[in-house]
Structure formats: C-alpha cells, structure tokens
C-alpha cells in the first residue's frame, strides 16, 4: 500500500524537482555567461585585475542594460497576454525627441523645476496614451497585436521625425534648463535605481496581484478568460498602457544620457527586448513567465555584449554569436518532453 503510494508520488516529486530546475535554468544560463565573461575578460591595465569584475565595469553593465531592461519588463506583460509590442523603439524615439523638444524649443515662464517636470511628464502622457490606444484597438476591434503595433512602429517613427524635422535635438551642452535636466537624470545611480525600482514594483504587480494573475490567464486562454468573466478589455488596456509608460521612461533616460533627442534612435530595440523576454523563459504564446526571468535575460544579453566589446570583437561576429546564443538559451529552457521529441 505504502509502496504503491510511494510509486505514485515519485513522478510527482520528480516533476517538482524538474520544475525547480527549470526555474533555475535561467540562472544557470546567466552563471555560464558570467564564467565565460570572466575567462574572456582582458586584464585591467596596471592593476592586472579582471576587467570584467571591476566595480566600474559592473556598474557600466547595469547602466547599459537599464533601458532595455525597462522596456523588456513592459514587453513581458504584453507577451504574457500572448501579445507583442513591435513599436517600443519608435515609442522610445518619440519620448526622447518630445522631451528634448520641450526642453530646447519651449520657453514657458513657469520656472525650471516645473519646466523639467513637464518635459518628463508630458512625453510619458503621450506614450501611455498611445499604449492605451493599442490596447483599445486590440481588445475592442480585435485587430492582432502584431499588426497594431507594427502600424505604431511605422507611424510613431514618422511622428518623431516630423516633430524634429528629421534633425537631432541636442540637450545639455550649455547651461540652460536642458543641462539641469541632463545633470539630474543621466547620472549612473539615477539610471540604475530607476531600473531596479521599476523591476521590483513590476515583479510584485505580476506575481502578487489580481491584475498579474489576470494577465497570465488571458495569455493562457483568452476565450476561457472571456467566458470566466474576466475584464479582458480593461486588462489589455492597462497592459499596453503600462508598456507605453515604461518605454516612455526608457526614452527619457535615453535622452538624458545621450544629451540628445534623436528621431532615429531605438531602431530594432523591440528585438532586443523580445530576445531578453524569451531568454528569460517567458513563452511567446503567453501565460507563463516572470519578471525575474526577463531581468536575467536582459543581463545575459548585456554581459555578452560587454564581454565582446571589452575584447574588441568585430561587430559582425558579435551579431552572429548573439544569434547562436539566443537560440541555445531558449532551447535550454524548453520543457524536457519537447526536446526528446526532437
């Protein structure tokens, strides 16, 4: 009797172990990449320390992944609903250029702090509104997210270029309000802590709230979710608005760090974000995934890039190597049975 019970339990225990393992697979991937980075890293001139591990380089990496990280977090929510947002690169460019425009070509008599606040706030209102619009079209008109956000990607790129008349808007090289903005928003600690705060809040939002649960349910089974009476429209609206908002923040950070609103920045950022999300174990078909996974995905990509560049690897080789690593990373995280099926 007991034996039988044990027998029944065994697969259960095995399943549990497997799921634990799976949870840590991304970590394993990250660990492997870090080990590789340490081995490949050149030595620091003079001190002989491993360059990759120096605090300066580590904080460089944090800073460099921040923008993609913030975008990828919003993308995780969207992919969890089995959607996609191809427009993030254009949205980032729009936020950055609009912010730069407000700082350099608008001269309200409202005092510097309010001016800076509005130069951050208004672009976020715009990007969040576009996100909401996507959500509306996707949930109400039932147009596929791919199509809607593809249209957004084209249209908003055009809008950003139209806003700036195709030129770059430089900020923060004199001593005007835009310099105060750049000094305020571009320092490393500001960028990195923005990323960390967003990651923590969004992680809680996804794993500990009713909204988070609904996001996953919709991605798991949309029709079921509708029949179950979930407020599908509302959830989709919030999710796309959230992505617009987060991408807007990334755009503001982008403008401050580069001292520029360039309408041509952010091209193919959507692919970096999607890559990070899938490397982090989120299913493209929705329903399953986590923010921590995405963060790991973001760092796997970031560390890889950093290592290649410290070594001075040719950019074309870098692209080829990244392609291979993305496929391997995702394959590693697929459920076991899929693999044995070949």
């Amino acid at each position: 009797m007991l034996n039988n019970l044990e027998k029944n339990r065994l697969p259960l225990i095995f399943d549990m172990m497997a799921s634990r393992m799976k949870k840590f697979q991304s970590f394993t991937g990250l660990l492997l990449i870090i080990i590789m980075a340490i081995i490949l890293s050149p030595r620091q001139h003079g001190t002989g320390r491993v360059l990759f591990l120096t605090p300066e380089n580590i904080s460089d990496i944090f800073r460099q992944v921040s923008e993609n990280g913030i975008i990828a977090i919003g993308m995780t929510f969207i992919i969890l609903t089995s959607g996609i947002d191809l427009s993030v690169g254009s949205v980032l460019a729009l936020a950055a250029t609009f912010c730069a425009k407000l700082l350099t070509q608008w001269d309200p008599s409202i005092g510097q702090p309010v001016h800076i606040f509005l130069a951050i706030f208004l672009p976020l209102v715009v990007t969040t509104s576009f996100g909401t619009l996507y959500g509306l079209v996707i949930s109400k008109l039932k147009v596929q997210p791919f199509i809607v956000t593809l249209a957004g990607m084209i249209g908003l790129r055009g809008f950003a270029r139209f806003l700036t008349n195709n030129a770059n808007l430089d900020i923060g090289f004199g001593d005007d309000v835009s310099s105060v903005f750049a000094d305020l928003v571009s320092p490393k600690p500001v960028v990195i802590s923005t990323f960390i705060v967003i990651a923590v809040i969004m992680s809680v939002l996804l794993s500990r709230t009713v909204y988070g649960l609904r996001v996953k349910s919709i991605g798991d089974n949309l029709i079921g979710a509708r029949y179950a009476g979930l407020p599908v429209t509302k959830v989709l609206l919030i999710t796309y608005a959230l992505s617009g908002f987060l991408t807007g923040i990334a755009g503001i950070l982008h403008a401050a760090q580069n001292h520029q609103g360039s309408p041509n920045d952010g091209i193919s950022y959507e692919l970096d974000a999607i890559a990070a999300v899938v490397i982090g174990g989120t299913k493209m078909t929705g329903g399953k995934g986590s923010i921590i996974g995405t963060i790991i995905g973001v760092f796997i990509m970031g560390i890889l890039t950093n290592t290649f560049r410290l070594k001075g690897v040719d950019i074309n080789v870098e692209m080829m190597a990244k392609a291979v690593i993305i496929v391997i990373a995702v394959w590693l995280q697929m459920p076991r049975q899929h693999k044995s099926k070949g």
């Binding site: 360059l51 460089d60 360039s262 560049r309 001075g312």
Partner: peptide, 26 residues
Amino acid sequence: EAEAVAGWLQSDGRIRMTEILRAHPE
C-alpha cells in the same frame, strides 16, 4: 588603439566608447 562601429549615432558612440575607455587607459 581601438575601433568600434557606432552606426553614425550619438547614442551608440557613447555606449561603444564606454567599453573602449575601460579597456584602454591611454
């Protein structure tokens, strides 16, 4: 000392230069 492809962009120039500066003190 080093070269990097930054695709004509200020943003890429900044990012690529950061790593070059770390690896090349002079």
